[in-house]
Simulated scan of single mutants.
Amino acid sequence: MTAQAAQTAIRPANADDCSSLAALSLEVWCGTYLQNGINSHFADYVLSQYTPAHFAAALQNPAERLLVSQNLDGIDGYIRLAHGQPNPVDNQSRTEIMTLYVQPRHQGNGTGLRLLQAGLQLCRDNHWDAPWLASNSDNTSAISFYLRNGFEHAGLTHFRIGDSHYPNDVLRFRSP
């Protein structure tokens, strides 16, 4: 375990985290998906989705759980799970990993894996189905991460922003 990992704790998110979750989400989403510039189509979407109020509502939803990775300075990643979200490909699971984001400078040090493992344990503790997720089909590093950590391809869906749609790989966790 690295010194940084030893100084990091995975904990449930709380109301005081909402602005940090919004800022982290903006950083990761824009850095991942807006490679060639920012236009109003994407800016309007991301600014409407990742707000402190959006996270406050998620924290109040009994079907959702958010866990954060907290280091000495603040939150460097989070996982958001929702129960009652059917897998769009095979409808076998109703538990979705809606988001797993880690700040770019904290990627590669185990933060994502610790969050994923904590999220999987949360599913087991709540007697939720083994989770599924959708990842942008062009995000090969994220897809590789999930495949290395117990997920398998289940099919394809599309993420929609307005009239545009983008292919997403649907992955499901292989239950032991």
Rank of each mutant, 00 (worst) to 15 (best):
C123V: 11
N168Q: 11
R105N: 13
N61H: 08
L116R: 11
A53G: 13
E27W: 05
A13I: 10
A57I: 03
S135C: 06
W128S: 01
V89Y: 02
S164M: 12
N36E: 06
D73M: 11
F145D: 07
S19C: 11
A5V: 01
N136A: 05
P88I: 00
L147C: 07
G150S: 04
R94T: 06
I75K: 00
P88A: 05
V28F: 03
A56S: 15
A22N: 10
L156T: 13
A63Q: 15
S19P: 02
F42V: 02
S25H: 04
C30R: 15
E64C: 06
D90W: 11
H127M: 08
N61C: 11
Q121N: 13
V89A: 02
Y146Q: 06
R148F: 14
R160N: 06
L26S: 05
Y101H: 02
L26A: 04
D44S: 03
L122K: 09
Y50Q: 00
D90L: 09
T32K: 05
V28E: 00
R160F: 01
Y45C: 04
D44E: 09
N126C: 14
Q92S: 11
T99G: 04
T157F: 09
F159E: 04
L133M: 12
A56P: 07
I97A: 00
G31F: 15
W132A: 01
R80C: 03
D129R: 06
Q49P: 00
T99K: 06
H106V: 01
R160M: 00
Y45I: 02
F145H: 12
E64W: 03
L156H: 14
G37K: 11
F145I: 14
R65Y: 08
H54M: 06
T99M: 05
I143H: 08
Y33W: 14
N109Y: 08
A134R: 03
Y146C: 00
E96D: 00
P52R: 04
A82K: 05
Q35D: 08
A22H: 07
L156Q: 10
A142L: 13
A154G: 01
D16G: 04
T111Q: 11
N149F: 08
A57W: 08
N14F: 09
I97M: 09
G74I: 03
F145N: 11
P104C: 08
A63N: 13
M98I: 10
Q85R: 05
L147R: 13
N87T: 09
Q70Y: 07
A15E: 06
S141H: 15
T32S: 13
